[in-house]
Design a protein around this nucleic acid. Structure first.
Lengths: 194, 194
DNA sequence: CGGTCTCTTGACGGAGTTCAAAGCTAGTGG
DNA sequence: CCACTAGCTTTGAACTCCGTCAAGAGACCG
């Protein structure tokens, strides 16, 4: 079983998996490599998998009627990524998922997740807490989006995810913050002049 | 056991609870009434409960450094509301929860939820799906906030929650949409002139 | 080393904010 | 049950932040 995922479980629920649970986690997903700039989940199609990144970086986004990209989430080693809505409902997706770097991933189908959860109460617990944490973080992010200026959102982003800054192109960070690349460029200039 | 909550479980996971599970759901929470405009969870204090509304309406919000209210969520009969982050981490809260109308609620402590989840895999499953759905909806809302104009966000809100429009004051809807009451008033005027 | 993708800079425009004041409405107390 | 008041909504005018359009500079890859 991947060490990264073992750590992720412990970090999330503060408990270690049993030997059988570890075995289930190594047998059910399959490993896959993706080159950078590969689209691994496509809007309009059902998103059939949840991805756990063991190496590399990826992001999910949404394209609106005007054709603008809207970044939802960045994910690197030790992070999970999927189109939640599509994955769990089985309906066609609304998000794209694309790699930013060459990636190694553990790929879980819905059956894998369901089997893992059905087979172990602790694992179901793990996934509940995982989503709960993500939900709380997202609520927090939304309040900031609704009430802070782009500058303070950028500063908070830079503080929360300093390792993202050198790894993710600026125009995607701008999109994540809900502004245009030009605006982020200007904000960074202002900040550097202070 | 409250019929509303039974329905809520079935609507969420498409399964009915067993008799024992129903019993647990009636024994563990306590019922409480709150007058309108009562603050039931206070920022800065630990949010110890999850509330399931059986009658009335409430909302959660956040107050930023400038003293502005930022509405996170509205909740009416059949909805759950809490400060997720505080409730699950046991750390001090960042949101306030306040009633909009006289309310009847089922109040669950962390121990109640943990007991319910520990005692029944189906109930843990229910809570996982509940949070998952909320998460997907929130992701969707964030993309809209980041890419649509206030007008189209208002139109979508009005379409998704028509019953909220006559029940919730406009300045709170404005806050939920991330704009000022004056702006929402102007948007509504424009729309009525079309 | 050429081409494409990314970042920067400038000028202008527009959506939403701020400040201020007046008109409504609903809940409270007499 | 009516009148008063506090809270909500509307409107106007000036301003600001960010978006749009456009063009040039820089970086990265084949």
């Amino acid at each position: 079983m991947e060490a990264t995922i073992k750590e992720n479980v412990f970090k999330t629920i503060g408990e270690h998996l049993s030997d059988e649970e570890c075995e289930a986690f190594s047998e059910l997903p399959f490993q896959k490599s993706y080159a950078r700039k590969t689209i691994i989940a496509d809007e309009g199609k059902v998103c059939k998998y949840v991805y756990f990144i063991t190496k590399g970086a990826a992001y999910s986004y949404y394209i609106n009627e005007d054709g603008d990209k809207n970044v939802i989430q960045f994910a690197i080693e030790g992070h999970w990524i999927t189109d939640q809505y599509s994955f769990f409902s089985g309906k066609k997706g609304i998000f794209m998922i694309e790699t930013l770097e060459d990636c190694e991933m553990l790929v879980f189908s819905k059956e894998s997740i369901d089997n893992l959860c059905r087979g172990s109460h602790r694992i179901e617990h793990f996934f509940r807490i995982l989503v709960q944490n993500a939900f709380a973080a997202l609520q927090y992010r939304l309040t900031k989006t609704n009430s802070e200026t782009a500058e303070s959102r950028y500063l908070e982003f830079a503080e929360l995810y300093p390792h993202f800054l050198n790894r993710i192109p600026q125009y995607l960070i701008a999109s994540y913050l809900g502004i245009r690349p030009q605006s982020l460029s200007r904000i960074r200039k202002e900040l550097s002049e202070k």
